[in-house]
């Protein structure tokens, strides 16, 4: 199984042969339709509107349920318009004994912030080295990165990682959650792609002739050029880790939860009893990511499309 080479093959190969017929004959009726392939039809629009509604409806509905009384939430046909109880529910949610939302938010910010900083920094270093520096073994090492990107070792190694945390008596500590996630193969891959495009070889050579060291080049030339890519990687890493569940679930307890664990506890403890309260807690957990998504939507969309190895 040569998984290591797979991402490289995602860079689409150039078409093997140019189409034999040059698309020049504008007089043929085909020329009209050539615009036609990329012109949206009625079906395209209807389909996209339908899919968009399906995408957004569950999110909208969460707000609806969170803002109405539990009695409304349980009725049928279900409530489809927001009510006026949201503020009151949010206050109650933060005071709720079953789920420590404030502690969860605080822990999640600490964990996610640390992981994001680390991933971005380590990825700019490695991405720069793989893109612009020549060193023996770089191909094999990059292959290892690509392999680690596709095989979730953190998830497969969860048993020994758990054993290690037990032996170190690190259960229920934040470092147990943070440490295994400080690196991300995808980050190195994304940064390597970006450095290759954004930093011309000539600039690096010129800096070398002027006597700049490798670290100096990284700091003064590469880092400034990488700023947009760092924002993208930071956003994606933040989203991914904010939503991480399995590993925190393994090593943290109810006394020291991340926000996701707090939500899970809330839903376990009071799902049947107080639906709108569970939805309010869930809504609170989504707000930081939702704000990032709305503010940085362009960068996030870009990052996902770039990261696919286009």
């Amino acid at each position: 199984m040569s998984t290591a080479t797979a991402p490289r093959s995602t860079v689409p190969a150039a078409p093997k042969a140019n189409p034999p017929k040059p698309p020049r004959k504008k007089k043929q009726h085909g020329a009209n339709e050539s615009a036609g392939v990329f012109a949206p039809t009625m079906m395209t629009r209807i389909g996209l509107i339908g899919v968009s509604i399906l995408s957004v409806f569950p999110l909208y509905w969460m707000v609806v349920i969170a803002s109405r009384s539990t009695a409304d939430a349980a009725g049928f046909p279900p409530a489809l318009l927001p009510g006026g109880n949201l503020g009151e529910h949010i206050q109650a949610a933060f005071a709720h004994p079953e789920a420590d939302l404030l502690l969860g938010l605080r822990n999640s910010f600490i964990i996610t912030g640390t992981v994001t900083l680390s991933v971005v920094l380590i990825s700019t270093l490695g991405g720069f080295a793989f893109a612009k520096l020549k060193f023996r073994g770089s191909k094999i090492l990059m292959g290892t990165v690509l392999f680690s990107m596709m095989v979730p070792l953190q998830q497969l190694g969860i048993v020994p990682l758990y054993i290690i945390m037990v032996e170190l008596e690190w259960l229920d500590t934040l470092q147990a959650v943070i440490l295994p996630f400080l690196i991300n193969g995808f980050g190195i891959f994304l940064m390597r792609q970006y450095v290759e495009q954004a930093v011309p070889d000539e600039i690096i050579e010129a800096a070398r002739i002027d006597g700049a060291s490798t670290l100096g080049i990284w700091w003064r030339i590469v880092m400034p050029a990488l700023r947009p890519a760092m924002v993208v990687l930071g956003l994606l890493t933040f989203m991914l880790n904010w939503n991480e569940f399995l590993w925190p679930f393994m090593v943290l307890s109810e006394q020291n939860p991340t926000i996701q664990l707090a939500i899970q506890q809330a839903s376990t403890a009071m799902f049947a009893a107080d639906m709108s309260m569970v939805f309010t807690c869930t809504l609170i957990s989504i707000i930081p990511i939702a704000v990032l998504f709305v503010v940085f939507g362009r960068q996030i969309v870009h990052g996902i499309m770039e990261g696919s190895g286009k």
Binding site: L48, V51, S52, S55, V56, P58, L59, W61, M62, M239, W242, N243, F245, Q260, I263, Q264, S267, V278, F279, T282, S285, I286, I289, A290, F293, I300, V301, I304
Partner: peptide, 16 residues
């Protein structure tokens, strides 16, 4: 719009 579901955590998806 198409990407919006990605903002939710799996836990939130589960609740909804």
């Amino acid at each position: 719009l198409i990407l919006a579901p990605i903002v939710t955590s799996v836990v939130a998806v589960g609740v909804i």
